[in-house]
Design a protein around this nucleic acid. Structure first.
Lengths: 215, 215
DNA sequence: GTCTATATATAGATAGAC
DNA sequence: GTCTATCTATATATAGAC
C-alpha cells in the first residue's frame, strides 16, 4: 500500500480535522473512521478510548509548538531584556505559522483545537495541557509579566485569562468570521492576518493601567 | 400545590441552571426533568424539542436584558454625546446586575448561557439572537463605533468579535477562574468584580490605534 | 396536563474470528 | 493488525392510557 499512510496516522489526520471543525463531543468515532477509511474498532485498538485519541491529536501539535515557542521567547529576551508586550506576543507568530509546514492548514487546525480544548472539555484537557506543558506556559507567563511590571500578579492572572478567551474564541470562530468579513467588507484574511490583528488588541488590554491608577 | 411553581417554569428553572453549568449538549432532558421533579415527557409537551427549550431559556433573559441595556445606552448618550468607550461598556453593568433580582444568580447564569450559546451551537443560537435582537445589537455596535471613531468599520468588526470572545469565554469559565483566584491570590470576586475587571481590558483593546498609525 | 411504556437513533467500547 | 458483529449505555422523541 504505497500511497496510504498507516492506520494510526490516518485516524489522527481525520480526527484533528473533524475535531477542529465541529468540536470534540460533536464528532463521533464512526465519523472519524469513515473519513479515515479505516475500521471503527481500530480507534480503540490504537488509542484505547476517545479521550486518549483527543489527547494524542493535541499532543502531536503541542510537542512541536511548545518547544519552538519557548525557544523563540528565550531568544527575543536575550536580544532585548526589555522586550515590549507586543514583541512577546509577536514572537509566537513564527512558531504558529511553522505549523503549516507540519501539515496543511496546521496553524488554523492547532488554534481551533486549542480553542475547543479549553472551551469544551470538563477539565481533562486543561489538566492535560497544564501538567504536560506547564514549564512552557510558566515561561510565557513570566515573559508577559515582566513586560508589564506595573500589573500586579492577581490582576495579570485575570488578564491572561481574558487573553486566552479572546484567542480561543476567535480561533474557534475564525472560519465564520473571515467569511463574514469577506462578505461585508470585501476583506480577504488568512490566519496570519487574523493573528496580526488580534495582537495589538491583546497587548493593549493586558497592559492598560489599573482604573484606580488613572486620575 | 401551593409552594410549587408550574411545570413549565420548573423546567425552565432547572434547565437554565444546568445549561449554564454544563453546557447544552452535555445536559440531557432526563437530567433536567429529574432535577425539576417533573416527568420526562413534559418537556416535549411544553416546548416541543430540546432546541426550543434552549431558545426559551435564553429568551427569558434576553427579553428583559436587551431593552434595559438599550435604554441605558440611549440615556447615557443623551446626557453626554461624547461618552467614552469605558462609559458605554460600564452602562451595561446595571442592567446585568439587575438580572439578580429576576432570579437568584441571574447575572452569572445569563452570561454563562450567552457564552455557551455562542460557543457551542452550530449556528442556530447565533441566528436566533441576531434575528430576534438585531436592533438592540445594532444600537450597541453604533454606540461603540461612535465612541472610537478612529477605528474603521472593518477593524471594528474584528475587535467587537474579539470582545465577544473575551466576555463569553470569561463568563463560561467564571466559576473556575474565581476559585483559582481565591486559592492562589486570596482574592474574593463576585460576578460584579469580574465584570468591572474586564471592562478596562475591553475598552483598551477596542480603541487601541491601528499599528500602522503608530510611528 | 401528566403519566408509563416504548420507539428510534446513536454513541463508545469489546469479543472473537481471521 | 484488522475485520464483523454485537454489547451496553444513553439520547431525543412520541403513542396512548388516564
Amino acid at each position: 500500500m504505497a500511497n496510504r499512510s498507516d492506520t494510526k496516522t490516518r485516524i489522527l489526520d481525520a480526527a484533528e480535522k473533524l475535531f477542529a471543525e465541529r468540536g470534540f463531543s460533536e464528532t463521533s468515532l464512526r465519523l472519524i473512521t469513515s473519513k479515515a477509511e479505516v475500521n471503527l474498532a481500530s480507534v480503540n485498538y490504537h488509542f484505547g478510548s476517545k479521550k486518549e485519541l483527543i489527547r494524542a491529536v493535541l499532543a502531536r501539535y503541542l510537542d512541536v509548538f511548545m518547544p519552538a515557542a519557548a525557544n523563540a521567547i528565550v531568544a527575543v529576551r536575550q536580544e532585548n531584556a526589555d522586550a515590549s508586550l507586543d514583541a512577546i506576543f509577536s514572537t509566537l507568530v513564527a512558531p504558529l505559522l511553522d505549523l503549516n509546514q507540519l501539515r496543511a492548514e496546521g496553524t488554523t487546525t492547532f488554534l481551533q483545537l486549542l480553542g475547543r480544548g479549553y472551551i469544551e472539555s470538563q477539565g481533562h484537557l486543561r489538566w492535560f495541557i497544564t501538567t504536560h506543558y506547564g514549564e512552557y506556559l510558566g515561561l510565557f507567563v513570566n515573559a508577559v509579566a515582566e513586560s508589564a511590571p506595573h500589573i500586579p500578579p492577581a490582576e495579570m492572572f485575570w488578564r491572561l485569562h481574558f487573553t486566552l478567551g479572546t484567542v480561543v474564541f476567535t480561533m474557534a470562530s475564525a472560519d465564520a468570521l473571515t467569511e463574514i468579513a469577506e462578505a461585508d467588507f470585501g476583506e480577504h484574511n488568512d490566519i496570519e492576518a487574523v493573528i496580526r490583528k488580534v495582537i495589538p488588541y491583546l497587548s493593549a488590554g493586558v497592559s492598560v493601567p489599573l482604573t484606580k491608577d488613572v486620575i
